[in-house]
């Protein structure tokens, strides 16, 4: 996984609440057995005027010019600013895969759906929860070329005016993201504890340990 340390990048505002994972990446693209290549289909039903299908060449598809990501001033945005309950719905990790493949490295919102929030950390994307009033203020401040600097080490966001906004991240998640660590390798460091747990639990619940 790619590490996340600091990021200074253009912000794209997606002014909608309850953006669901079906909207982030529609189900027809979930048929892929690969992890990459979802970026062109990110927000497919909002971004294009036609109906998207897997393996379509998106270069020639009709664009919805009103959609924020199609507006030239937001090209190259790596930070998504949005409203509450972002990522609700399905557990599909294809949603953060699509965001990451498109180029987003951070999402700022007043709240996130739990599974999506968790999935972001597995893919080098930093989801940042800020109070609704602060998110509102960032939406109001948005102007052409609006950039934010996110520093995960110090857990701060710096606005173009130089104002600093702090944010919280679980220590464990922050450590893994800062170092781009493989979760499985870290968990396997506790292999002895897992085995000891199994031995103890098999006495209490033998019906769960008859694997043969």
């Amino acid at each position: 996984m790619r590490a996340f340390t600091t990021l200074t990048a253009l912000v794209a505002p997606l002014d909608r609440a309850n953006v669901d994972t079906d909207a982030i990446i529609p189900k027809q693209f979930l048929k892929s057995i690969r992890r990459a290549g979802f970026g062109p289909y990110l927000f497919d039903e909002w971004r294009y005027l036609d109906r998207g299908e897997p393996d379509m060449d998106c270069a020639n598809r009709p664009l919805n010019k009103d959609f924020v990501l199609n507006q030239p001033q937001y090209h190259g945005a790596q930070i998504l600013l949005t409203r509450e309950n972002f990522g609700c719905g399905s557990s599909r990790e294809h949603a953060p895969w699509a965001l990451e493949d498109y180029g987003f490295r951070a999402v700022i919102a007043p709240s996130f759906a739990d599974i999506f929030f968790n999935n972001c950390f597995k893919n080098g994307i930093l989801p940042i929860v800020l109070p609704a009033e602060t998110v509102d203020r960032l939406f109001r401040e948005m102007a052409d070329g609006y950039q934010l600097t996110i520093d995960l080490q110090s857990q701060t966001i710096t606005t173009p005016a130089g104002q600093q906004i702090g944010f919280d991240v679980d220590e464990n998640r922050r450590y893994r993201l800062l170092n781009g660590l493989d979760d499985i390798a870290l968990s396997l460091q506790h292999a002895d504890k897992i085995k000891a747990y199994e031995t103890e639990r098999a006495k209490r619940a033998p019906w769960l340990f008859q694997d043969a």
Partner: peptide
Amino acid sequence: AFGIGTSEVEHALATQCLV
């Protein structure tokens, strides 16, 4: 019982655990 993403599917396969 709860839903997980694909990274966690792999994690549960490999470790029988989740963080």
